[in-house]
Nucleic acid binder design. Sequence first.
DNA 1: TAAAAATACTCCATAGGTATTTTAT
DNA 2: ATAAAATACCTATGGAGTATTTTTA
Lengths: 298, 298
Amino acid sequence: MELRHLRYFQAVAEERHFGRAADRLHMAQPPLSQQIRRLEEELGVTLLRRSTRKVELTAAGDAYLGRVRGILAAVDEAGEEAHRIDAGLEGRLVVGCVGSATYSLLPALARALREELPGVDFAFRGEMLVPDLADALRSGVIDLALLRPPLDDAALSLRLLRRERLIVALPEGHRLASRERVRLADLEQEELVVHAGRGRSVMYDAVVQLCRGAGFEPRVRHEVAETSTLVTFVAAGLGVALVPEPVAALGVAGATYRPLVGRHARVDLAAATRADDDAAALARTLEVLEAQVAAGAR
Amino acid sequence: MELRHLRYFQAVAEERHFGRAADRLHMAQPPLSQQIRRLEEELGVTLLRRSTRKVELTAAGDAYLGRVRGILAAVDEAGEEAHRIDAGLEGRLVVGCVGSATYSLLPALARALREELPGVDFAFRGEMLVPDLADALRSGVIDLALLRPPLDDAALSLRLLRRERLIVALPEGHRLASRERVRLADLEQEELVVHAGRGRSVMYDAVVQLCRGAGFEPRVRHEVAETSTLVTFVAAGLGVALVPEPVAALGVAGATYRPLVGRHARVDLAAATRADDDAAALARTLEVLEAQVAAGAR
DNA sequence: TAAAAATACTCCATAGGTATTTTAT
DNA sequence: ATAAAATACCTATGGAGTATTTTTA
């Protein structure tokens, strides 16, 4: 059986006339009669009662007509859906994000995406660590990750979004809060609050490497899983923290921020995807993401 | 586009290999590649990413596969449903019934039909008048009517089920209740309770005609729409009634029944259908109905 | 270089057309 | 008597087969 048979049957059933149905189908009547007959033979069911005066549906034919309408509509709808997905106008996309971008870039991005791609069903997961983001990407749990290099995996494709200057988060009234800018060496005596995950958290490792590069071993006092908690700890006077500059968008009472001096006082932010993911919605999403970054979205 | 394309696409998408898919479809690989290509061209969407090493679904292809599975399943299901309807195993059937059979034959029939044809969705409407039953049949509101002739309509097909003897419903303690049997002439002085609908109710007209045949004008005192009400009125001593013998199945406290003597003291019960109704479920239903009647169902 | 998809071509099955007959009202 | 579906027969499109080339991992 082919869709042709269903289309022909629908035409005859609706016209209740082989001749008119043939006109509607832009074909001659005899082949139409033949195809309808074939359909009935293949089904083993009489769908139409014909006489020279009228064509009527049998009970089985009437039920079949209803099904056929649904099937033909479903065929069209399937093609249209494929089109929309192909154009990136429809789809489902899960975005994962490291902790230090969860409160800066992610909200702005989410807003822009919902605006620009209303047909795409977005979900967001913040406060993830880079290795977990990589796993989630590979396994298909997420489709796009905002993370901090390095990340070396041939299955994943990485594009640098921007370099983020590091700043120092200080409790208000802290001795360093009176400075215009802070040097790394100033932090030697300070207790630090850092993102948890030694060896798995890029921020943790970056902070430790920076301090060691400045000639001292950092005094890591508190490790927290979430960026908002980190700033809250600083505000509570539990220590100071190094965070990417956009985190300053997180205004927490009792915490203030100062620029950090130093050539290496930067961390990268990148977008990662599966290298073989050709979803158009993803391409569109990356366009929106890069436009947001170019427009200076925090 | 034809179902062939959908079947081929499903095979390739599931095998993720044109060669294996071609085997599964019992065809050669090149025409399979061609048909998939045609499908993609017609849709204007790339469904599969091919390389010599692997075949993968695009996002659009993945969504399309899901739709295609549903469509192909729906095609099969439509054929199977048509088959079941053709065999009379499935369908929807509304049965209408005159008042004087509503409490006798109809309940027994309903029970038998639900038992014998569980796949058919039956609905029953009792206490209808013959002209209304005829209209409902013609308009398709009901598919089968249990009614009392005469009924002359070329669009309707009638088959006599049985002749029902008339009996007299009497209040207990009525002077005629002591008789073994009652003659029509005995009713001359009695007030009658009859089915409402002069000229439309076969029972009403039959009662009047019988009395006139016996040489007197009946004293119609109460007209009721429902058979159960009629017997209840009799039980309450409001009058006596002539009813078909199976109505005696309605046991109402205070009412009793006696045979009626007389050659014409009978009414027919027939089954009516649309003459052009070829629903197999209806044919099956008529078989069950006739079996019930033959088995002496009240 | 080897496995697999794509291309080139050939063939024939069958969808669809034309002419005609049958049928039912 | 006539309109309409069915039948008979023919044509040619295009689906499927075989042989071969191209591609990429």
